[in-house]
Design a protein around this nucleic acid. Sequence first.
DNA 1: GAAATATTTCGAATGTTGTCGAACTATATG
DNA 2: CATATAGTTCGACAACATTCGAAATATTTC
Lengths: 110, 110
Amino acid sequence: MSNYREDQIEELADKFKALSNPNRLRIFLRLYELCCQKMTTEELEEVVGNPKCACVGDFGKMLGIVPSTISHHIKELKRAGLIKVERNGQRIECWIDTQTLAKVRSFFSA
Amino acid sequence: MSNYREDQIEELADKFKALSNPNRLRIFLRLYELCCQKMTTEELEEVVGNPKCACVGDFGKMLGIVPSTISHHIKELKRAGLIKVERNGQRIECWIDTQTLAKVRSFFSA
DNA sequence: GAAATATTTCGAATGTTGTCGAACTATATG
DNA sequence: CATATAGTTCGACAACATTCGAAATATTTC
């Protein structure tokens, strides 16, 4: 957890910043719930076939804030590399970037 | 990592906020280095005798920023419960709050 | 108690964030 | 192509963050 290079510190601080807003943290946790939890082999199969998890509108309902604000938060989480995003028809689907999650996790388990 | 209660989310977001400033993250990492790393039984003895780890001036030199700014960051880390602070003569000594660290860690390992 | 050292508090300057609403763009469907 | 649905972009605004320097406080030492 220590002995970090300078650029790694900046990068890590940036990820913490992305998670430092309660609404963004809620979005992230919801995606985690949907994408990454309790992955048995069978469930993983499902996810591999359809990795997208939730869209802007879903979070709007969940958090009671307007789409433009959600859009802003999604952009921020994406910028920090914490989630991935892809259009599917009218919807923008979001899911956890598991590689980044693994990095942040490894920070806390060293 | 999911299934968090509302107040836990706010609390966690607040800890991430404290770590979202690169200078505060550097201070935190430095304290981790000093306090928590490589604790063999003998080293632990030492620490138990003198749990304080670094003072405001040390961080000032390390980061090249003025004491008032360090003081502010220390206050912030303390407010978030990430570090503990105690006066020892002229100096204010700081060390990691290992209980809080454990909480944040457990978030990432669920 | 004066001087030196360590830290805090305060006020100011400057920049960033979170949120909204309005206007815009993209996609799907009658 | 008109309409409906889903998101984005933009501009505004208030709140908050980062940093500094000056002045204040606490502690130690002479």
